[in-house]
Design a protein around this nucleic acid. Structure first.
Lengths: 221, 221, 221, 221
DNA sequence: GATGAATGAGGTTTCATTCAT
DNA sequence: TATGAATGAAACCTCATTCAT
């Protein structure tokens, strides 16, 4: 092996390790912030969970808040990119909308940590993410997708007219999100396991049903 | 004025003041916990907001967690008792159900602090309220109310059959709650004011529409 | 002893103790800041030197910088109030001016800690004291005193005319201050003890001589 | 271009660059220590300002204190060598002394960073420079110069007799140095700009006047 | 019942310095 | 020679909580 090759290998390995560490910290931070909230999270716990010295966390991310913002940006990107937009666009409106609701539900159910993050962020009046420009422009395309699917359904006479895409978006997210978000509280007051496999399947069917029924229902007048 | 009178006056004033102080603390704590979450809340801020010495807080409530539990119990009672159950029962099913949704929405919209509390509580996996027996039995009557209203509608042929009251409850709360709960985050990513007077009125109409459309819609098969 | 008396005694004792502690902290802080500079000073050292828990320092003074400002304000007041202004005013101009120089010199020589404070403050571009309004207005009367003494001398034909009081003030402080301020460095490079009793006495005579010679000297043209 | 040439170029460039880097670090350190003091200075800031990796600082200078000493030695040499000694010796005593004062004043005014360094050094009781042998012997010739100029003036009947050269040296440095050293504090309490071009020129005239008046003035007895 | 004093524990952050490559 | 990773120590500060009056 030549020196040049060794050099390159070293460079690459170092870079990779560095990237790995950054990522390990981000992952640990995600879990910590999600589970304990911003104020409850401990930088030291994050470092320990990531298996690195606490100072490395500061070396990479500067301070707790910056780390939190990094975590949130990562989460928001995931939220927005989990939909297979083209898939939804090519289906007929009913299937497309059902697919949209289902993929929303499944995404949240499969990434419960995101719920904790959003919860925590919201508790602080979204003050942290407002420092992120990345997040601000993320939602426009999703609203566009909902609006166009809605329109296609209306044109085909399947969906009722006059539905506000923003309201619909809110409702979709609401029915998907709520149970998952308040699963601890709801599980306690309703004395049921609401997040077991079967329970989730039932809920998924229900929420798709709710959204489509609403869209297909014709008010008498 | 005689000494006896003074004594009585003092006694009464002290007694009243004592109750007042307890309540002032609870109110201040409610605001603080709601706005900053459990970890973000400061006992001293609560004392200052209540206009009392911090030691009084400890004198009355023992420790931060107990105070939080007291706040939560108070909140849960309010949540459950805001419905005028008999009012709903005496209406026809459609009006009754609409009334139920509307009163849910209005209650949360009018008591946003409750959202902050539930958020915070949930962030900690509902660990605090599980120490409260009071809360555990609070929701049974509400589910009963929903179930009976549903049933009346089905019997009259107005509502579809086969709807699970628990799912319906979840959906009602979801559509009412979600926007309010995530108002900061949503306002930011959707770049709209979602909690102004008009916006709330529109949302209220929409959610009632969603729930009733779902109940009235007949699946083809 | 009556209850009332006990109560009064208690109140007074507590208040006194509280004042004592505040003062003990201020004194310890003065020494620490003077000897080590703002950055070199340690809050914990201050607390230890004052014989109090470190948190009490924060309880009373909030943070390091506020404590430093308190120390500086105290120092500046002492600097300005050490002159017996009326004494100087009632003397004849020569004696008065000599008295002014001497009392300046003796004050600094007797309060070397003040030099350390001013040094430290100045190292930070006086950024801390600029937050103090108290200090800003302290020097006007001193300049007035110098100007009037100067004028009296000129009128009596003892002092030369055309001397700027501000320049004179600067020179007086300079000759009094410099040796004391740089006593460590100067002692080292000049290989002499410059702050022993005799050395100080010689310096005092010299500086008075310098100032008065300057004032009394008539430029030929 | 041949390989040999490249090699030589590299070697030469590296060697030159090495000296350059050392100097760049020293310069950056000078500025940092001067502006923030020993404790306030940050090794990393120095490295960044010098445009080198922080490890290089450690590689060249070992540790923070050694770097500081290097900076101080450099400064002291400059202080002592800024006088054109022969120039002063060849002038008549009055011109020579005026020249000495003026060049002292101008040197400090033109190298304000030195003031910061001396200030900082002095704050630590000159503990760092006491480790330097270089500095210890630097001032003897300057005192000799002052003494001989003084003597020449006395012999010519221009200067008064009995002036201690050390006192005179202290006074010269004092009047030159003080305003510059405490420019921030003084500017604040006197509410004047004291280091503008005009203000400096006025001060320079004044201090030369003070020193020469003192030397020329004949005490009555 | 009410208040100021006191404290312990722990959290975030900074920084000089060393290691390994 | 040069660089990124790593670390230990300690500084500032916050907060819940208890003590003593």
């Amino acid at each position: 092996m030549t020196i040049a090759q060794t050099g390159r290998r070293r460079g690459r390995r170092a870079a990779k390790s560095s990237e790995n560490l950054r990522e390990a910290i981000l992952k640990a931070a995600t879990r910590e912030f999600s589970g304990k909230g911003y104020d409850g999270a401990r930088v030291e716990s994050i470092a320990r969970a990531a298996g690195v010295n606490i100072n490395l966390v500061y070396h990479y991310y500067g301070k707790k808040e910056s780390l939190f913002i990094a975590v949130m940006e990562d989460a928001y990107v995931r939220i927005r990119t989990h939909h297979n937009d083209t898939n939804i666009r090519t289906h007929d409106p009913v299937t497309g909308m059902a697919e949209l609701v289902r993929s929303t539900f499944r995404f949240f159910a499969g990434n419960l940590y995101i719920i904790g993050l959003l919860n925590s962020e919201n508790l602080h009046q979204a003050c942290h993410i407002q420092k992120s420009e990345k997040i601000a422009t993320l939602y426009d395309p999703l609203l566009g997708l909902i609006a166009s699917t809605l329109e296609r359904g209306v044109e085909l006479g399947i969906f009722r007219a006059g539905v506000d895409p923003v309201q619909l978006f809110l409702t979709i997210d609401a029915v998907c999100y709520f149970l998952l978000s308040y699963r601890y509280t709801l599980g306690f007051v309703l004395k049921q396991d609401l997040t077991g496999k079967d329970a989730l399947a039932r809920r998924e069917m229900h929420v798709v049903d709710v959204v489509l029924s609403y869209l297909k229902y014709r008010p008498e007048n």
